[in-house]
Amino acid sequence: MCQKAKILVLIANQILLEELYMNNTATKAIVASAITAALALAPLTGVQAAGSGSTEKCYGVAQAGKNDCKAGPGTSCAGSSTADGQGNAWMLVVKGTCEKIVGGSLAAK
């Protein structure tokens, strides 16, 4: 390889290294400043924290506690008033709030 080409390769390598270093340094700086900024903020209470997000909504929905006694001993005939329909031959009658969801060019997922 002639001297000129060698120098060009060396320069190219140097540029690549510098770019890598710059990117790395930039990332480090962004992460460091983001964490420093978060540390500098006064601690928020949970309620304030939830309300202060401008880009995200937080929803907390309480669900009744579950336990494992639903089909445990002592349920006796509780379920027998609800008849178990036919196992295989069934007609699916969809009647719910899905009627409020319209459109669907994505239907074939």
């Binding site: 009744a64 579950k66 639903k70 089909a71 349920t75 006796s76 005939c77 509780a78 379920g79 027998s80 609800t82 178990d84 699916l92 009658v93 969809v94 009647k95 719910g96 709030t97 899905c98 969801i101």
Partner: peptide
């Protein structure tokens, strides 16, 4: 009871699906 009560447990897990398609489905 086996079918119905386990189905009830499933309904507790999936109340939104149940609401979307209705109780019968």
């Amino acid at each position: 009871n086996f079918i119905v009560l386990n189905g009830d447990a499933l309904a507790d897990m999936y109340p939104t699906v149940k609401r979307l398609i209705g109780d019968e489905a």
